[in-house]
Nucleic acid binder design. Structure first.
Lengths: 341, 341
DNA sequence: TGTTAGCACTCTCCTTAGTTGAGTGCTAAT
DNA sequence: ATTAGCACTCAACTAAGGAGAGTGCTAACA
C-alpha cells in the first residue's frame, strides 16, 4: 500500500505524538507541532482518509485520532527510521558487557537488566533448549556413603547437577570408572542427540557392571525429559505498571499472570521465522491478555547457531524505533560475549 | 488490658466480619449476624468504648467501624483461637511432601507453592545463610585445558559451582591433589567458620605448590563474601492483586517493588526473636509500603538448628487464625522433610 | 482542483446540586 | 443497664448544566 508523502507525514506525526503522550491527537496539534505547512482543515481531510484506510481510529466522535494496529504496522514497516543510538547508550551497553562472566545465565540476566532499564519495558529471554548444547564434562562423585553427586557441564557454561542415592557398596573408584565411560560416550555430543535409543543401548550394555550406571543414565534421561522445555527469564515486569494504558488492575493482572506461565512466554517469543528483529503488534499476538501490547524480538547466537530469543514487551504505543535499535545493538553484544565464554 | 466478655465478643465480631467482607461493620449487622442477644444500640455503646480504647476506627462519621492495628493485635493475642485444620487440608500438605526431593531448594519452592495456593497470600522464604551449612564435598575438575569446574556441596543438598580459568599446564592429577587437600581442610566445617584467617593461612601454606590453590581459595573466599546475604524465595506475589484494598495500582506497585528487593524482604522476615509463630501487624512493619499489610512468620529447622524463615504476607485484614494454623502445620512438615534429605 | 476559514455539531469531562441510605450519637423511657 | 426513637452526618449515586476539544461539512478562495 502506497501513501503519498503528506499522508505519511501526518500518520507519522500522529504516531509519534501518541507514543509520547498517550492522548488522542487532534488536527490542530499536528498542524502546529509538526510543521507540515498546512492548516488543520487540510490535516483533517488527510486524517479522514487515513481513518478510512484503517490506519487510525477515533475513540469517539469528538476526540482526536489514535493509531490502529495496522497504523503501527505501516509505521514500523514503511515509515520509521531506526534510531541511531547515542554514543552514551552504546558505551553503556558495551561497558556492561566488560565484566567477566563465567556462566551463560549471568550474561542473560545482565542483558535483561540492561534492556528493561534502558527501555522501561519488560524484557524476556527464552533460553536455549538444553538439547542444543553439547556436553563438555560429566562426572560422578561420592558425597557420603550411599550418596553421589552427578554433574554435567555443557558449552556456554551451563551446569546441571543432582544428588542421587547409590548402593553403599559403591566405591569412589567405581564412580570414577563410570564417569570415565560416560565421558567417553557423550562428550562433545549435543544433548538432543542423546536420544533415548542411545541411552537405552548404553544402559543395556553397561547394566551388568554397576547399578550406578543405570542411576546415572536415569539422571541423563530425566534431563532429556525435563529440560526439553525452554527456560524463560524475565526482568522489569513491573514496568508495565508505569504505562497509563495499564492503570486498570485487571489488565495488569492478566498480563503478569501470562508472564508467570513459562510455556506461554516461550510460545510468545518463539516465532522466529526469518531471524533479525521481529515486531508483533497488538492483535497480531495470539494471547488475549497482550492484545494491547507489542513484542519486539531478536535472536542471539552461540557457536554460530541461533540459540535463544530475547524480547521486549510493551504497550502497542511503544517507542519502536528506539527499542528496536537498543535491542539490535544489545543482541550483537550478547552474541559476542557468549562467544568469549 | 482486660476487656469484659461482651466487648470481646463485639470486637471479635467486627474483626471476623471485616476480614470476610472488607466493608466497615455497623452495629445492626453485628447484633443480627452474631447473636449477642442485645440491641444495636447496646452494641453502639460498646463500639464507642472500643473506639476510645483504640481497637476500632471509623473511616468517616456515618460509616461502620473498621479494626485498627491495635484491634487486630488484641484479637490475635487474646481472642482468636487457632483454627483446627480440616483433615483434607492436612493430608493435602502431607501428601505434597511425599514426593522424593533431592534438593533443599525444591523443597522450599514446593512449600511456598502450597502456602500461597492454600492461603491466597504471598509466601516468602529467607533461606539459610550459607555460612550455617557445613561442607560435605569440594571438588575441582578439568572441563577443558585452561578451565576447571569447582563445585561444593553442603548439607541439605545445597550445591554451588563455578568455572574458573587455570593455567593450561595444570593437569587432572594436580586438580585431584588440590581437591583432596581442600576436602581434608574444610570437610564437615560450617562455611561461616572458614573465616578469612583460616583461608589466608591455608593459602599462604599452599601457594607455593600450585596456582590452582589460590584460585580455588579465591572462589571459597568469594562465597564467603557473596553468600553472606540470605537467599530469598517467594511465590504468589500476584495474589496481592486480588485483595480489594490494593485495587489502587500505586500501592501494588510499591509492594511488588519492595518484594523485588531481597535485602528488604530478608529484613522484613528476620526478626525471629523467640521462634514459634510471629505476627507483625500493619504499622508494626518498618517499611512504609507494607504498613497496610501483615506478615506471619515461622522458622524451620535443619539438624536441630533454626535454619530459615518462612512467611506469609497479606493485608492487615488477614485470616489470621487459618493462616497461622496452615503455616504452623506446614513448617513442621518442612522440617521433617528436610531431615530426610 | 486543492486548500482553508468558518461554523454547527458531538461527545467527554468536570462541576454543582440534590437525593438516598447507612450508620451514628444522644436522649428519654423502660 | 438496656433500648427505642430521632435528628444528624456524610459518602455515594444521579442528574443537569456548562466548558472545551475536536470533528465534518460547506462555501469561498488561489
Amino acid at each position: 500500500m502506497e501513501l503519498d508523502a503528506r499522508k505519511r507525514k501526518v500518520l507519522e506525526a500522529i504516531i509519534i505524538d501518541y507514543i509520547a503522550t498517550a492522548e488522542p491527537v487532534g488536527s490542530r496539534t499536528i498542524a502546529r507541532k509538526y510543521d507540515l505547512g498546512v492548516s488543520p482543515a487540510t490535516v483533517r481531510n488527510e486524517m479522514a482518509d487515513l481513518e478510512e484506510l484503517g490506519f487510525i481510529e477515533q475513540p469517539h466522535t469528538s476526540a482526536g485520532r489514535v493509531p490502529s494496529d495496522a497504523g503501527y504496522r505501516y509505521y514500523v514497516d514503511c515509515i520509521m527510521e531506526r534510531t541511531v543510538l547515542a554514543k552514551e547508550a552504546k558505551s553503556l551497553i558495551e561497558q556492561s558487557y566488560q565484566t567477566k562472566m563465567k556462566q551463560i545465565e549471568e550474561l542473560i540476566q545482565l542483558s535483561l537488566k540492561i534492556l528493561s532499564s534502558m527501555t522501561s519495558y519488560t524484557s524476556l529471554v527464552v533460553a536455549p533448549h538444553f538439547g542444543k548444547s553439547t556436553l563438555q564434562l560429566i562426572q560422578l562423585m561420592q558425597v557420603e556413603p550411599g550418596k553421589a553427586l552427578i554433574i554435567i557441564v555443557t558449552n556456554g557454561g551451563r551446569i546441571e547437577n543432582r544428588i542421587i542415592d547409590i548402593p553403599e557398596a559403591v566405591t569412589k573408584t567405581d564412580l570414577e570408572i563410570v564417569s570415565a565411560v560416560l565421558n567417553e560416550k557423550f562428550k562433545g555430543i549435543a544433548v538432543k542427540d542423546w536420544d533415548k535409543i542411545i541411552l537405552k543401548a548404553v544402559q543395556s550394555q553397561l547394566l551388568g557392571q554397576h547399578k550406578v550406571f543405570s542411576l546415572a543414565l536415569e539422571f541423563l534421561d530425566s534431563l532429556l525429559c525435563d529440560e526439553t522445555e525452554d527456560k524463560v527469564y524475565l526482568s522489569g515486569a513491573l514496568n508495565i505498571l508505569n504505562q497509563p494504558e495499564f492503570k486498570d488492575i485487571s489488565k495488569v493482572k492478566n498480563i503478569l499472570e501470562l508472564l508467570e506461565n513459562e510455556d506461554v512466554v516461550s510460545s510468545m517469543l518463539k516465532d522466529e521465522g526469518q531471524g533479525g528483529i521481529q515486531v508483533k503488534i497488538g492483535t497480531e499476538n495470539k494471547h488475549d491478555s497482550i492484545k494491547e501490547c507489542s513484542i519486539i524480538t531478536a535472536t542471539y547466537k552461540l557457536d554460530g547457531k541461533t540459540f535463544g530469543t530475547i524480547g521486549l514487551l510493551g504497550p502497542t504505543r511503544m517507542q519502536y524505533a528506539q527499542a528496536m535499535s537498543i535491542l539490535e545493538f544489545l543482541t550483537e553484544n550478547l552474541s559476542i560475549s557468549l562467544k568469549r565464554l
